[in-house]
Design a protein around this nucleic acid. Structure first.
Length: 277
DNA sequence: CTCCTGTCCTGCCGGC
DNA sequence: TGCCGGCAGGACAGGA
């Protein structure tokens, strides 16, 4: 399940492979992704040069030389496989979008669960000024701070776990990294958001950045479901401290507690009841 | 306004 | 062995 580090990795892979390439053909095998692929998706891409790839939260924004923006979200199970011109292209089940360039590079969007989408914005639309980017919370590595977090948590009665998952509070965190950041900060997932103290917010920001940095360095996450943008398996397995470790011993030094799993807002939360207060 | 719940989708895994 | 139910979960709609 791609969160910020995985999306960052995919985005970098696409940038390296596709930037400055001119699109020669586009095939959309399924238009009914999380959102229906617009009718003009293909025509907006074909014949144009791709000039920019950037990530915002869990979204990838692609721009062409006409200033047209394409938005890619990997959902739960989205992957991008990139083929150089010498590699044989073997299409598989759930390959929904295939983009080829004049130089023979191919990008394949693959998404079994179809929770993700790949679409084009209307002509003249600036991605920063449309939903969900307009309302999106701070970008972790670009101006996020304890002050910003505290401001967003003000008056919120929801538990801190759910607030950190909220993309309006901070962009890019998902279930795995929120569980990890809470554990690393020593903050219980059950705490009311509005009760979080400044020192705790500082720890949450610092821990999140630390974990995200290490996960990006490792090339994204780790779940069996994930593949690197270039299609090569073999992600370095980042060792989670709490996520998926129900019943196992807490990794904090000297802590003998077992990791608990609870459900919050329909999502699993893993935490140590001794270390997290 | 905030909060909460249901929905989308498929692959995988455990139980019988 | 094979079937089936449950679970995974990001974003968002709609209801309380």
């Amino acid at each position: 399940m791609p969160e910020l580090p995985e999306v960052e990795t995919v985005c970098r892979g696409m940038e390296q492979t596709l930037s400055n390439q001119v699109v020669s053909s586009v095939r959309v095998y399924r238009r009914d992704l999380r959102r229906i692929v617009s009718d003009d998706f293909e025509s907006a891409l074909i014949g144009r040069r791709l000039v920019r790839f950037l990530r915002r939260g869990k979204y990838i924004v692609m721009e062409n030389d006409r200033g047209r923006f394409f938005i890619l979200h990997l959902g739960m199970s989205g992957r991008v496989r990139l083929f150089s011109k010498t590699e044989a292209l073997d299409l598989q089940k759930h390959d929904h979008v295939v983009i080829k360039t004049m130089d023979g590079v191919t990008a394949v969007y693959h998404d079994p669960r179809r929770f993700g989408f790949f679409d084009v914005l209307p002509e003249g639309a600036d991605w920063k000024k449309v939903s969900p980017f307009l309302q999106m919370g701070a970008e972790p590595f670009d101006g996020w701070s304890a002050e910003d977090l505290l401001q967003k948590l003000k008056g919120k009665k929801t538990v801190i776990k759910q607030s950190l998952l909220d993309q309006l509070v901070v962009a890019g965190l998902g279930n795995i990294y929120v569980c990890e950041a809470l554990w690393m900060s020593g903050v219980s997932p059950l705490r009311a958001s509005c009760d979080i103290q400044k020192s705790e917010a500082q720890r949450l920001v610092a821990s999140s950045l630390d974990i995200l940095t290490r996960a990006i360095a490792a090339g994204g996450s780790t779940l069996k479901d994930y593949r690197q943008a270039d299609g090569e398996l073999g992600y370095f397995q980042y060792g989670f401290c709490v996520y998926g470790r129900e019943g196992e011993k807490c990794k904090a030094q000297g802590c003998a507690q077992k990791i608990l799993r609870i459900v919050q807002g329909g999502r699993s939360t893993f935490y140590c009841p001794a270390c997290q207060k």
